[in-house]
């Protein structure tokens, strides 16, 4: 009999980290292979499944940073350390880290879009020698929305990190402005050979990639991550299809040259 891909395994919640009222990171026991940018179908029986990206990868542990927005995610927020969640996956193509070796790399993320790139930033912040340079620009709405605060300090030791908010709500000490405003100031020597990763809400990705193209980045060197409705994660349910592409199988990471041809 073939393997039942829909059968989920139980994974223990090792730790819960609260970033904001709506966003927690669940540190889950997981020993298998996984790439940054891939996702799992996370579920609680009787409530349903939700696709969630891995936001961190360590030995025996993966992080899932979850925003509570509805049925399944609300229920996940009722679970504590020592309890378990069902998962199946990982699915999707993920980021191939070797693609960025030896390059000037720019990563720009907005809001919850920081989650899927966090493991990429982490990898190159820990191994700064394998890239020429890494620049990370992250934008959040307000200081209250900032995810992974403590990581930013650590990353800024080995990478060029800019953390910015749309509105500081009167709090001092924050860069204020959209991520796009920092693109013209990028310290990239040869934009034509540099690589970029852009993840965030659709409008943010549109304007950010436009800014990068204007700066001289090549379409094929810019990667984005698409979010679509997903029920299966394995190319069957059809919800994630755009043109001849299944986001769950061929994505969620696409080069801009491929992504721009896709029309919902």
């Amino acid at each position: 009999m073939p393997i039942n891909e829909y059968a989920a395994f139980l994974s223990e919640i090792k730790e819960v980290i609260k970033h904001t009222d709506l966003e927690y990171t669940f540190r889950m026991a997981y020993g298998g292979d996984v790439l940054p940018g891939q996702f799992f179908e996370v579920s609680i029986p009787k409530f349903g499944e939700a696709p969630i990206s891995v936001s961190g990868i360590e030995d025996g542990i993966i992080d899932l940073t979850i925003r509570r927005v509805g049925k399944v995610t609300n229920e996940i927020f009722e679970r504590y350390e020592g309890e378990s969640l069902f998962m199946r996956g990982p699915y999707g193509n993920g980021f191939n880290l070797a693609d960025y070796y030896g390059k000037e790399l720019v990563i720009i993320a907005g809001g919850t879009g920081v989650s899927p790139v966090r493991a990429v930033v982490d990898h190159f912040a820990n191994n700064p020698d394998v890239v020429k340079t890494m620049t990370f620009i992250a934008g959040f709405k307000t200081p209250n929305d900032i995810l992974f605060r403590s990581d930013f300090e650590r990353w800024s030791k080995t990478a060029g990190v800019t953390l910015t908010v749309d509105d500081a709500k009167g709090e001092p000490g924050y860069n204020i402005g959209l991520v796009t405003e920092y693109i013209p100031k990028l310290k990239v020597r040869d934009a034509a050979s540099a690589a970029a990763i852009v993840v965030g809400p659709p409008a943010m990705m549109r304007f950010t990639t436009m800014g990068l193209l204007k700066f001289g980045f090549k379409e094929e060197n810019i990667q984005i991550s698409h979010e679509r409705r997903m029920c299966c994660g394995i190319g069957k349910c059809g919800h994630c299809k755009i043109n001849d592409v299944y986001v769950c199988l061929d994505g969620p990471i696409f080069s801009l040259s491929k992504a721009k041809a896709l029309l919902d």
């Binding site: 029986p45 009787k46 349903g48 499944e49 069957k236 349910c237 059809g238 919800h239």
Partner: peptide, 27 residues
């Protein structure tokens, strides 16, 4: 047409048990 939507439900009589099912979906 091959699309479907996943649904979890629990039984009215006994909320502790339920099922995961898929139903035909339309684009």
């Amino acid at each position: 047409c091959t699309c479907y939507t996943m649904q979890d439900i629990f039984y009215q009589e006994n909320g502790r048990v339920g099922e995961r099912r898929r139903v035909w979906a339309s684009c």
